[in-house]
Amino acid sequence: MNLTDGEFLLLASVMDIIVPPVDELPGAGEMGLAKEAEELAARIPEYGESLHRILEALSLEPSVRVEGGFAALDEEQRMAAIEILEANMSKYFDKFVDLIYIVYYSDERVHERIGWRSGPLQPLGWELPAWDPAILDKVSKREPFWRRV
């Protein structure tokens, strides 16, 4: 899926509303993640369809059809425009939000902020406290109650 320049800018603007700035991080769009979203949507048809439909619907939304488009709206107006899509196109909107979350929470800068160790799960794994059979003290004293046949 190749977005036009206009669609790409619109996507980045919407991403900034979906996942706004926090601490030292800008919003998801300003972080440059629209490209990742576009690429993932190109790989997975259901994300591609959702992205296409949401951007198309947003560009046709009457409140957005002003000079400068979505980017020219203030934050409250942008939120309102997106909420209209959420209410009327929930199936596509949910996938669209998933798409944005997937690329955002796969980013190392975000991992650092939330305290998540980036990279593969292996080979490090995680440490857990060793198994301690003392935890069974109460339940193991219970009389067997499985149903006899």
């Binding site: 509303i17 996942v19 706004p20 926090v22 997106i82 949910d94 939000v97 944005i100 979350y101």
Partner: peptide, 9 residues
Amino acid sequence: RVPWGADHH
């Protein structure tokens, strides 16, 4: 799903 928007983080 975690809500989008101002309360997201």
